[in-house]
Design a protein around this nucleic acid. Structure first.
Length: 759
DNA sequence: ATAGGGTTAG
């Protein structure tokens, strides 16, 4: 027994705990309630793995209330709420009568669902226990309704500072700054916890000056106060201030704890400076502090974001059983960030219990790596899964994916979903809607959302301007500059790129020039826009002059604008100049070869056309063929060249044949391009749908029998043949057709396209 | 025993 005593004295680590356990088994004491609750208590402190703790518990023949209480605390520590409830049922089945302390732990840690035990507490007549009473009130204050907390608070005749502090934090939590401040001012006795709650509260509403003012007034700061201020800076993006405060803290002789390290590591991550991160890791190693899984997860994330993915993975693997949901999520988003969706998905599928961030990381991963359709599929899976409710971040990713596909029907369904689930959007949420509507070709809705917003930021304006630019609404884009200045929002680099692009697409030379002069320090992209503007309206000399006057070397954007202008205005010499430079800059871009060969073709220089084509083949380049999409009843349909995989393929090809005879009857036989040529030359049905665009257009026609507007959305260039088909459909059927081609929109009405320089 | 601080997603 004295040997046991010496072991108990030495317990400081998980290993010592296991030694004690082994010793207890030797002495046959391992299943006695006193020792079991002691072991579980230590397991909580030393972060023992769940499997180990479960083993200790299950080998106890008749666990008493103390054992259960220790287990409740252990599971609370792990955030394993589901275990709490099954354990409570287990306890009731074993006829162990719950005491106040059990309810306290249950209510406190089971969070929102824990409050259902309030009724038990009242029924058992222990509702006046000062600790339990505070916990009930605190849970109401945290999870709502806060009015219920206030009722309990007002009923109390003997309020402690703990009760006051719970109410103040509660009001902050619900964004009620006024009431939090009022209680702070009238409470009889404030302590360091009260002050720290105020610091956190102000940091939460991004009022860091007030937060700092309260922080400076704290008579005796605790390490938690320092951590609160540090995290206030870090969470609001002030990495430098956080690191400065950390120095101040060290100078004041305050020992950082694990939470401090987690906050400081996240500040370094935010700073994105690998050297800084390295020096921090060394500092931590020097101090030989014990790293809990929180710190390890923060380090994992730091390496994933500004170090190496390999090191991050090492941390992830090392965490083993302690791996928490944040570690899984950090690793998934790390893989997604570098485009390794397979590794990301592999981890995602292995997560034991996913949370909303897991779903969001994976959905955003797909959305940001050009897999919009899969992103939407995963979202549908998410809302069909129990216990996984999407939040604003989810919706922003899905709305963005929807915009990339141009799926307007599904976009409208998402808006309905937002309303039905009472989801409030922040400015960025509204911005994503503006972008989605613009990309789906519905500027009316984009404008409506913009006007409905209570407050806008620079991104709201930039998004709407980019939409106007894509649709060729130049005047509207220019107007927004003055509107944003009236609202007190400063235009930035992106704003001017948008407005200049809009001027360019609308052919507004003078207006664009005036806007260009407003820019204090034009960036290279602004020059590219101006070159494009000069080029499109045919002022090729001015464009060339601007390039020569630029203070920087022209990049691919500038030269691409010149090449495109040379094609539009059939200028061989300038085209050759730009193309030769572009071949050096972007050897793998087949588009430049195609443009140059088009220029030669328009000048009738067929030998040169052939030469460019040969050079392209020699360089191993192929003209890229792509996919076209059409949305029908919220589902996207994808087509490619000669595609016969669609379920309504027979209908589609029949429609194409009908369209062909209709065109022929009306005398459209010898247009240089046209569908007819394909058929008559080859006399094969497969050739009818040589281009994916044609198939997509026909499908659109087939499915939108009622609608007046057909939206065809695609990523690649519309070929001459398709252009003819589109024109004919719009004329024959009297429909408006909107095509997204090269990220620009072309509105076809009565066989006319709104863009002057389009084909 | 009860109140204040921490990692992950757009």
């Amino acid at each position: 027994m004295s040997h046991l005593g010496s072991i108990v004295c030495k317990i400081k680590k998980l290993n010592h705990l296991k030694q004690l356990h082994a010793q207890l088994i030797q002495n046959s004491l391992h299943n006695q309630n006193y020792w079991v609750s002691f072991l579980i208590h230590l397991s909580t402190r030393f972060h023992a793995p769940p499997s180990y703790v479960a083993l200790i518990f299950s080998s106890t023949p008749h666990p008493d209330i103390n054992v259960y209480t220790s287990m409740f605390k252990y599971y609370s520590h792990l955030n394993a709420h589901h275990h709490l409830f099954s354990l409570f049922q287990h306890m009731q089945a074993s006829h162990v009568r719950p005491e106040a302390i059990v309810y306290l732990v249950l209510i406190k840690y089971a969070g929102k669902s824990g409050i259902m035990f309030h009724a038990h507490v009242v029924k058992m007549g222990i509702g006046h226990d000062p600790y339990l009473r505070n916990v009930v009130m605190d849970v109401y204050a945290k999870y709502g309704p806060i009015e219920a907390a206030r009722e309990l608070f007002d009923e109390m005749t003997d309020r402690s500072s703990v009760d006051w502090n719970s109410m103040i934090s509660g009001y902050w939590k619900w964004g009620n700054e006024v009431e939090a401040l009022r209680l702070f001012n009238v409470m009889p006795e404030r302590n360091v916890i009260t002050w720290t709650a105020m610091v956190t509260g102000y940091a939460k509403v991004k009022d860091l000056e007030s937060a700092r003012r309260y922080f400076d007034q704290i008579p005796v700061k605790s390490v938690v106060s320092w951590n609160a201020m540090l995290s206030g800076y870090a969470q609001n993006g002030y990495a430098e201030e956080a690191l400065e405060l950390f120095d101040e803290m060290s100078n004041a002789g305050i020992q950082p704890n694990e939470t401090t390290w987690v906050t400081v590591i996240s500040a370094c991550t935010l700073h994105g400076d690998p050297c800084l991160a390295d020096s921090l890791v060394k500092k931590i190693e020097q101090k030989q502090i014990r790293l809990n899984y929180f710190v390890k997860t923060a380090l994992l994330d730091m390496h994933a974001k500004c170090g190496s993915l390999k090191t991050a993975r090492i941390f992830f693997d090392e965490l083993g059983e302690y791996r928490n949901i944040a570690a899984w999520n950090a690793m998934i988003s790390a893989y997604a960030r570098v485009g390794d969706l397979r590794s990301a998905r592999e981890l995602f599928d292995r997560i034991p219990v996913k949370n909303v961030v897991s779903w969001n990381s994976m959905i955003a991963g797909y959305a940001q790596n050009g897999q919009s359709a899969i992103a939407i599929e995963l979202f549908k899976e998410m809302i069909a899964t129990e216990n996984s409710k999407p939040d604003e971040v989810t919706m922003i990713s899905v709305i963005s994916a929807c915009g990339h596909l141009g799926a307007l029907d599904f976009g409208c369904w998402l808006v309905k979903f937002l309303n039905e689930n009472n989801m409030k959007l922040s400015i960025s949420g509204y911005n994503s809607l503006i972008s989605m509507y613009s990309k789906c070709g519905s500027m009316k809705d984009a404008k409506r959302i913009f006007q409905e917003m209570e407050a806008r930021d620079v991104v709201s304006y930039n998004t709407l301007i980019a939409g106007f630019a894509a649709h060729g609404y130049g005047v509207e884009a220019i107007k927004l500059i003055s509107e944003m200045e009236e609202e007190g929002i400063e235009p930035d680099r992106i704003t001017y790129i948008g407005v200049l692009t809009a001027c360019s697409h609308a052919g507004l030379l003078e207006e664009g020039h005036r806007v260009f002069k407003l820019i204090k320090y034009p960036a290279i992209d602004h020059y590219a826009c101006m070159v494009d503007l000069f080029g499109r309206v045919g002022e090729l000399d001015e464009a060339k002059k601007l390039i020569d006057s630029m203070p920087m070397e022209p990049h691919a954007g500038v030269l691409g604008a010149i090449l495109n202008a040379s094609r539009l205005h059939k200028n061989v010499e300038l085209g050759e100049f730009a193309a030769n430079k572009l071949f050096q800059l972007e050897p793998n871009n087949s588009g430049n070869y195609v443009l140059l060969s088009n220029i030669y073709a328009s000048a009738g220089r067929w030998q040169d056309v052939e030469r460019v084509r040969e050079a392209m083949v020699k360089g191993g380049l192929k003209k890229t063929t792509g996919w076209s999409w059409v949305e029908y009843k919220g589902k996207m349909h994808k087509f490619t060249v000669g595609d016969r995989s669609h379920e309504r393929v027979d209908d589609i090809y029949r429609l194409l044949v009908e369209l062909r005879s209709k065109l022929r009857r009306l005398g459209y036989t010898a247009d240089k391009s046209c569908v007819l040529r394909d058929v008559e030359e080859e006399e094969k049905e497969e050739m009818v749908g040589t281009h994916s665009e044609k198939l997509a257009i026909c499908f659109a026609l087939l499915v939108s029998e009622v609608g007046a507007v057909i939206r065809v959305v695609k990523n690649l260039r519309v070929c001459g043949d398709c252009h003819t088909v589109i024109k004919m459909i719009s004329k024959l059927e009297g429909r408006v057709i909107i095509i997204r081609d090269n990220n620009r929109f072309h509105h076809f009405i009565d066989g006319q396209c709104s863009c002057k320089d389009y084909w």
